[in-house]
């Protein structure tokens, strides 16, 4: 696409049109990994995992929780916490405008959804990052909602499961966003002191301030297959060390090899396996 068009057409619209050129109708989706053209209802039934190459495509936060939690007894936590632009931050766009665009685009107020619910009858609190909301970045709302979820866990002695998908801290909230790392980590330390389980599930991708705080602090750290996970992004590392990164660098399997995660779980096993683990950690009878 020519440069002048790049400049005047907002990027979201651009990628939409591009998709339409590649794929016949909205009923079809191309796997970003193996490029197989997939029938959407089929893909949905397969939890957004490519049936051809097993690639775990990203899931929206609400969809993630809907698939993970039992259908009954769900209560959302912290939905009333909404973002405020305290710094009146402005780069090439106003932060305020970026926020409203993200809210319109995702239907979410910010990048984390938290719910109390059950998984195979085990009561728990689950939170999920919305990567489509400013790259799942952690600002004050994400931090506050996460802490409120932790507080529900502490009050009701419920385990916590977090599905992380985030580029890191939210730059537009500057130092306030950095402090969310300390805030969420401190809250998790209370859970540890109380002996309440916390499982961190790392999904594609997890980087920066989210990786270097709540996402790595699980009693168990679990990854979805082939997720990209690290502190610094691959491009930054490449520029710093000026060498080619090893094959499979920062993928789930790399993290398992290096001792950063306990296991890799395919999406279809997530409910069953995590429920069984939580039963053991809480001395509940087997299902």
């Amino acid at each position: 696409m020519s440069n002048w068009l790049d400049k005047i057409v907002p990027s979201l619209i651009r990628s939409e049109t591009k998709k339409k050129q590649d794929i016949p109708e909205g009923l079809w989706k191309k796997c970003p990994k193996c490029e197989a053209v997939l029938y959407r209802p089929e893909l949905d039934k397969n939890l957004n995992v490519c049936p051809k190459c097993d690639h775990h495509m990203r899931l929206r936060a609400r969809k993630r929780l809907e698939l993970f939690l039992d259908p009954d007894n769900r209560i959302e936590i912290g939905a009333d916490v909404e973002p405020v632009d305290r710094l009146k931050f402005r780069d090439s766009k106003k932060y305020k405008d970026r926020l409203s665009a993200a809210q319109k685009g995702t239907g979410e107020k910010d990048a984390l959804v938290a719910m109390r619910g059950e998984v195979e009858g085990v009561p728990l609190v689950a939170v999920a990052f919305e990567f489509s909301f400013l790259g799942g970045s952690m600002g004050a709302v994400v931090g506050e909602r996460f802490v409120r979820a932790v507080n529900v866990c502490l009050e009701q002695r419920l385990p916590l499961i977090c599905f992380a998908a985030s580029g890191g801290a939210r730059m537009q909230e500057a130092l306030f966003s950095l402090m969310q790392m300390a805030k969420t980590s401190a809250a998790l330390e209370k859970m540890k002191a109380e002996g309440i389980p916390y499982i961190s599930v790392l999904t594609d991708p997890v980087f920066g301030g989210v990786s270097a705080s709540l996402a790595m602090l699980g009693d168990l750290n679990v990854a979805e297959p082939n997720a990209l996970i690290g502190f610094a992004g691959p491009r930054v590392i490449e520029q710093t060390v000026r060498e080619k990164l090893p094959e499979g660098f920062q993928r789930s399997e790399f993290l398992l090899d290096h001792g950063a995660v306990d296991m890799i779980l395919p999406r279809e096993q997530m409910r069953e396996r995590l429920a069984a683990i939580l039963r053991k950690l809480q001395s509940l009878p087997a299902a």
């Binding site: 790392m181 980590s185 990786s211 270097a212 705080s213 709540l214 996402a215 790595m216 602090l217 690290g230 502190f231 610094a232 290096h258 001792g259 950063a260």
Partner: peptide
Amino acid sequence: GQSEAIAY
């Protein structure tokens, strides 16, 4: 484990 070291 840079992330884990910081988080911890």
